[in-house]
Write a protein that binds this DNA or RNA. Structure first.
Lengths: 136, 136
DNA sequence: TCTTGCACCCGTAGCCGCTACGGGTTGCAG
DNA sequence: CTGCAACCCGTAGCGGCTACGGGTGCAAGA
């Protein structure tokens, strides 16, 4: 098997190559070994860590949350409760955004629905945006 | 009525003062008149424009979308269809995000639900994040 | 009248999470 | 051995603000 270069690592975990270097810069990924000529040489543990990070990002966890999750995951797997707490806070966040977007979807959908597309003066979309428009 | 300074304008439209200056820098707000000493002096049209921008931002329109909406709204109110198109594209966006967040909410909720909080080895939350976890 | 203290002025840097660019080296296949 | 991809690194840019710092203007109280 060929050496696990940054390019191959990135491809394996489905992450942009530049992002991998970025994660190393911010100490989210551990610095790998280097070849004699200075190229990064990764191992399987790096793939797992990077895949973990990627999945957590997909699920909307912030970099700082992921840092905490990794710290809790790694050593002695001490406190599952702390992990759950991070996830719970994040879930609250998701639910808030979900509620906001749902409201938004109603407003936009309803407004566009009332729109004829004619160049007739009263444009519902612009009216919605205008000053004394609907309350939230 | 006292002069409409930037502070009062910002308060009237419910926008941060620094944000107003930012909007002027990026040519989203028109530059107001100035007093002899250089202070900005706004009029009622500025309040309406700023309130429009604020409402559009609340509804998640990007600055560039707002720029387009303002262009379409202002002169001869030519094309309501173009306005509707911008709103429609934005609504699609909202619906995509909504779908993603809904999936996310299920995954997180379900996972946290399976979590005992005990320091027992298998932590559902960490498992979810780990490599071969659930497919989307 | 003077002084206090807030509101304003401006330019610039920071936030997040990358992404892109530029200019240089290394590795490998033909 | 040549050519080009893949790597190296540092830095700047994205969107949409927000904050900071150092300076001026203005209005009201003592």
């Amino acid at each position: 098997m060929r050496p696990l270069t940054i390019g191959r690592l990135a491809a394996a975990a489905g992450v942009n190559l530049e992002t991998v270097r970025y994660y190393e810069r911010i100490d989210l990924m551990l610095p790998p070994a280097r070849t004699a000529s200075g190229h990064r040489a990764y191992d399987a543990a790096h793939i797992r860590r990077l895949a973990f990070i990627r999945r957590a990002r997909e699920l909307g966890f912030s970099i700082e949350e992921i840092r905490a999750l990794l710290a809790l995951a790694e050593p002695t797997r001490a406190s599952c409760a702390e992990v759950r707490e991070i996830a719970r806070v994040h879930l609250d966040d998701v639910r808030t955004k979900l509620a906001d977007l749902t409201k938004l979807e109603h407003i936009l959908g309803e407004t566009i629905g009332r729109c004829s597309g004619d160049p007739a003066p009263p444009c519902p979309v612009l009216d919605m945006l205008d000053v004394g428009a609907k309350p939230d």
